[in-house]
Design a protein around this nucleic acid. Structure first.
Lengths: 336, 336
DNA sequence: AGAGCTTGAGTTACCGATAACACAAAATTA
DNA sequence: TAATTTTGTGTTATCGGTAACTCAAGCTCT
């Protein structure tokens, strides 16, 4: 591996002079600067960021941790975060926790040992508190994305889950549905709690009773639990509409419904949070509350960079972004 | 920041002893081991991977570079690669080149300066050769994914583009289409060339003439260039079917067609390479040649790890995975 | 012309970890 | 019991960079 010492020797200067050329620091005569530059090119020199990070105690590396890399919502966040980081001269490491607390923990350990300058963190749930405390203990700035974690003070970028949920459920009520089920994420996740609240409020406003037997809590990551759907459908008076707390749950639900010979929206209407990627624009089907994912990433990253560059002690900001109701064809009127 | 020296002092041993405890190397009495462990816990110690990497000259870090993080094909690859890396005790850094040669170059520079142990590389095109040479020059093992790069000897995991293209076009011919357009990626990309070859072969086998005015070359990343579609549609005898070389191109094409008041598949049939994510399973629409993306990632990662651990000098392997024709509703018979 | 300042370098120490070597004390062997 | 081996631990040098200090030579100024 080529080091500054190799360059130094070949250019007949000291290592320090090479370092100065690399960093444009100190005073160097134009002649030596040129000479050193030429040798660097010739030898194809690339600085060792470990050595540099070790002495400088910073890396110009940021980390983005998302909970599901196959979910378009999060990949769009990634795009926003990356564009913004790049603009400020930071490189970005992506991490994927797969909604798995264990993987999240592993990833945080890697972050810590890599000594990144900051983390944009989409938590798996309230239990992520421990990870965030860990970051705090080690003095690494972070900004939280998408889900609030009680007990932590820092910048947060959130969607308005309650409002979005209310819009979705009101839409269903407006179509004449009276039995609306909620297939929710885990109550350990703030968005799931708020979506439940929004659901309840909408029912209340619509003069409908809250029937807890219509509410199921699963995991955002995937809908593996067909049994829970079975429970809903086996009810004496089964739901005519289902509000899925996120896009992947909706996918699972629709597939399970079809396996049971029910079709959407003829037999059951389905709505959910978060849009799909390009696929959905081609053949729009699901009625969703779409959140501005790119903005999540871009704003979050901006807050993070400010937080890093202004040093500690800045007060916490909380940004809440609205979601947009996109009515498509997975919902229809119910008048039976 | 807590270092082994802090631990050493508090545990009344030398730094070296702490290092031995961390790495389970050398001989340590059970008593000191326990004492050191306890202090490490108390002080919440996390090893500094930069310092360690500097002396060990390896990082247990691998890098995955994909060309589009919002394309489900690549995120599924990421999932496969990550699962496999994890199983061998490697951490994975994701990078996203956005089909942009400049970003790819930046990313390779970061990789080089981070001194990762290996790279799983989905090239943007033939020009990536320079990047790969760079990796080679610095002795970093890599495996190429999805697209061949002429001039480089290493392991490659590819889809069978020619065969897939032929299946898609044969399907269209079978439906009665005679004027089939190809909206391709850049000829700088191996898959685009092979898909063109497959297209040509299918036409030949089907007894249809090859009309170069029906072939357009764009960029895989996105379909911004509506003018090219305009050219196709303005032909004296416009195409009745379009073969898009990848999923994102297909999305753009369909949107553009609709804006012109044409519907799919009534007026034009559309097929493409690569499936969409979960969204497509809910409301299947596009007829595609689906590639086993998870396998791409998993196999590629496996080859990479073998390559790293067996040292240099192993001969190059080339794995070609078949694609599967999924006939859905974006295609229909043509008998006018 | 001598004092003081600039300029363009070089020296040394250190960041946090580990390899290689060294060595006293304890255990084993002859 | 003396010689040898094993065990447990410490010392020193090093990885590739950079900060802080040093210093000779050339300039500027009175």
């Amino acid at each position: 591996m080529i080091t500054i010492y190799d360059i130094a020797e070949k250019a007949n200067v000291s290592a320090m002079t090479v370092s100065r050329v690399i960093n444009n620091s100190g005073r160097i005569s134009e002649a030596t600067r040129k000479r050193v530059r030429k040798v660097m090119e010739e030898l194809n020199y690339i600085p060792n960021s470990m050595a540099r990070g070790l002495v400088l105690q910073k890396t110009k590396l940021l980390s983005l941790l998302i909970t599901d890399i196959t979910n378009p919502f999060y990949t769009t966040i990634a795009r926003g975060a990356e564009d913004t980081a790049k603009r400020s001269g930071y490189k970005l490491l992506f991490g994927n926790s797969d909604e798995d607390y264990g993987k999240e923990k592993d990833y945080v350990e890697m972050i810590l040992s890599t000594r990144v300058d900051g983390v944009l963190f989409a938590p798996t749930g309230d239990a992520s508190l421990e990870q965030l405390r860990q970051l705090q203990k080690h003095g690494i700035p972070f900004v939280i994305l998408d889900r609030e974690v009680p007990g932590i003070e820092t910048d947060v970028v959130l969607g308005d889950s309650k409002e979005g949920a209310r819009k979705l459920v009101e839409h269903l009520i407006g179509l004449g549905h009276r039995r609306i089920a909620l297939v929710n994420g885990s109550p350990d996740v703030s968005t799931a709690r708020l979506r439940y609240t929004g659901y309840r409020e909408a029912l209340l406003l619509g003069g409908l009773p809250l029937d807890e037997s219509l509410v199921v809590s699963l995991n955002y990551r995937q809908f593996q639990d067909e049994a829970s759907l079975q429970v809903l459908l086996a009810l004496p008076s089964p739901p005519t509409a289902i509000f899925a707390a996120n896009n992947l749950l909706a996918v699972g639900i629709i597939q399970a419904l079809r396996q049971k010979g029910l079709s959407v929206p003829e037999d059951v209407s389905v709505v959910c949070f978060d849009d799909f990627g390009p696929a959905e624009t081609v053949n729009p089907f699901l009625t969703v509350a779409s959140q501005p994912a790119y903005q999540f990433g871009a704003l979050g990253m901006q807050l993070l960079i400010e937080r890093i560059e202004n040093g500690p002690g800045s007060e916490s900001r909380k940004i809440m972004l609205p979601s947009e109701l996109l009515i498509r064809s997975s919902t229809r009127t119910w008048d039976r």
